[in-house]
Design a protein around this nucleic acid. Structure first.
Lengths: 112, 112
DNA sequence: TCCTAATATGTAGTTGAACTATATATTGTT
DNA sequence: AACAATATATAGTTCAACTACATATTAGGA
C-alpha cells in the first residue's frame, strides 16, 4: 500500500472526492456541486477539474463507469466513481482536518 | 483591505502562523514547534520555512522584532511576530476549517 | 581537546497542482 | 435564429513546496 504523504489533499481534490463520495457524477456536475456545497467560495475551472480528475484516475482514487457511449441521451458524459483507495484517502483527510480543528480550539484554553 | 482569495492557507503557512499566534519565535524554533504540534507529521525543511517566512513578511502577515544584533547571547537569531493582518487571516482559515469539518459530519447523516 | 549533535539561517534549482485562456460540441429556451 | 447552460478537453503560466546544498555557533560526551 502506498504511503500517506499525499496528505494534505488540496482543496480541489478534497471537494471533488467529497462530491462523489456517495453518488458518481460527471465532470460538469462536480463543478456545480462543489460550487453549491462551498456556498460559491470554490468554483473550479474546467482546466483545474480535468487535470485533477486525470491525476486521481492515474493514482486509482477514482474510476470511470459507464465507459460505453450511450447514456440514454446521446450526450458525451463520463461518470466518475470513488474507489476504495479514494475512500481511504478521503477518510484520512477528514481525520486530519478534525485533528487540526481540535488543535486550534485547544489553543484558546492554554497558551504558549 | 486585500481580498480573501489567499485562502485556503497551505499547511506550511497555517502551522507557521499557529506556532507564533501568541509567542514570537525564531525560524528554527518554529520548525521544532510545528514538528511537536503535528506529532512529527509535519517537518518543515529550512528551504520551505524561510521562503514561506519571506512571503509572509512581504504580505505583512508577520514582522521581525528585536532587529538589533544582540539577543543576550551573541547568536544570530531573528524573532518573527504575527501582525493584526496575519491574525485576521489565521482566524479566517480556522473558520474555513471548522466549516469544512461541519460539512463532512453533516454528510454522515443525509446523503446525495 | 576533539568530535558530534543540536541549534541556527539561508540560497539555487526542480517539481507539480492550480490557474487562465482557449477550443469544441450539444441541449434547452426565448 | 440566437443565446445560455451543459459538457469535455488542451496549452501554457504561475507559484508554493520540495530537495540539495552551504555556512556558522554552541553544548556535551569521549
Amino acid at each position: 500500500m502506498r504511503p500517506d504523504h499525499f496528505l494534505p489533499l488540496t482543496e480541489t481534490s478534497f471537494f471533488i472526492l467529497f462530491s462523489i463520495v456517495s453518488t458518481p457524477k460527471h465532470g460538469y456536475a462536480i463543478i456545480k456541486d462543489v460550487e453549491r456545497m462551498s456556498a460559491s467560495r470554490v468554483v473550479l475551472a474546467t482546466g483545474t477539474l480535468y487535470s485533477a480528475l486525470r491525476r486521481m484516475l492515474e493514482d486509482g482514487w477514482i474510476e470511470r463507469m459507464g465507459e460505453d457511449s450511450s447514456n440514454g441521451d446521446g450526450r458525451d458524459r463520463k461518470l466518475y466513481r470513488m474507489t476504495d483507495e479514494g475512500r481511504r484517502i478521503f477518510n484520512l483527510e477528514t481525520e486530519r482536518l478534525q485533528a487540526l480543528v481540535q488543535l486550534t480550539s485547544l489553543r484558546k484554553a492554554m497558551d504558549g
